[in-house]
Amino acid sequence: MNFKNILVPMDFSKCAKSAFKMALTLAKRTGASIDLVSVTHIPHLHAEMVGAASIVNPILNDYHNLIDEQFDELIKTTESEGVKISISKYNAPLHDAIYSCTLQNESDLIVTGTKSQHDWLVNLLGSNSTDMIERSKIPVMVIPEGLENNNYKKIGVAIDYADFDDPSMLEPLRAFAELFESALCFLNVTTKHHKLFVYDDIKVGISAYFNDLKQSFHTYTDSRPLPEILLEAIKDLDLDMLFMLPKNHTTLQRLIKPSQTKSMALQMDKPLMTIHEKKT
């Protein structure tokens, strides 16, 4: 797989600019283009309301002019030479706009930023970035605010061997790791000590799929919450990035059980890449 078009949601915040810098690094290595997407959502006024267009249109025009100025300034002050950059502006709910832009421009990766600090409501309900992880059909890379290090020498790969049987779905991860000559540290957490050797065939398949990259396998027999274990592993193994496979939960499951991937995205100070598991 080669990254050909990278989508970057842009609200000109510090975390969005960090995501743009990461996208530029990838684009320069792969020859990919970048689509910067700005979204506003002014609800459509009822058609029967007199003068609705005269109220909304000037607001949108002024807003789009301001956005154009900010885009010009962003590109001028960033090392973007040699990278094809397009700009898309939408008046729509964020996820509708991202979905439409993904289809129209055939994007194969979303790079989005996340703030370094979150209030209690974001921690409870999630952010725009965590919503993209949950909804996106293409890989998502979440970049922490203010990240300056684009060195990805060691990538942690959190995999539940019990639910994994197709290494080929990790193709975007392999493409990324090959770009940066990354070593892969496969992380598995289980509380069932008697199953430590049950999944050896799975590990052999994974090892064969990534046979041209450095690999190591780490199993944690621990009953603590998964995010706590993974955060400790990131520190102990000195990882530069974490990869996770979000599960396809039903709406009821999402309400009852918090997403482990969402929790990691909100707590990490390192990049997180996700690819949704295949639907059965």
Rank of each mutant, 00 (worst) to 15 (best):
K235G: 03
H218R: 02
S86V: 14
S88H: 14
I98E: 07
N65K: 11
L36K: 10
H218M: 06
S116Y: 09
L187M: 10
M264V: 15
F3G: 02
E178K: 14
K17S: 04
S263L: 04
T40S: 02
D200P: 06
E181L: 02
H64K: 06
T77C: 04
D119S: 08
N150K: 03
C101E: 10
E48V: 12
F197L: 06
L94T: 14
G205Y: 01
A233N: 01
K84A: 12
N151I: 08
K14D: 11
S127Y: 01
D131H: 12
D200A: 08
F3P: 11
E106W: 00
T250D: 09
T261W: 05
D11I: 12
V50T: 08
S136V: 15
P271W: 06
K14L: 13
I229M: 00
E145A: 14
I202L: 11
T102H: 02
Q215H: 01
F210K: 05
I229V: 10
F71W: 05
L231R: 00
P227R: 02
S263C: 04
Y99M: 13
I202P: 02
G113V: 14
C101P: 13
S207F: 01
S259D: 12
Q117D: 07
P271R: 07
T78P: 04
I155F: 06
P271M: 01
L179Q: 14
A32V: 06
S216M: 14
M1G: 03
Q104V: 15
I85A: 02
M264L: 11
H64S: 06
I34G: 04
P93R: 07
D165W: 13
E81D: 10
R254M: 08
S13T: 09
L231S: 02
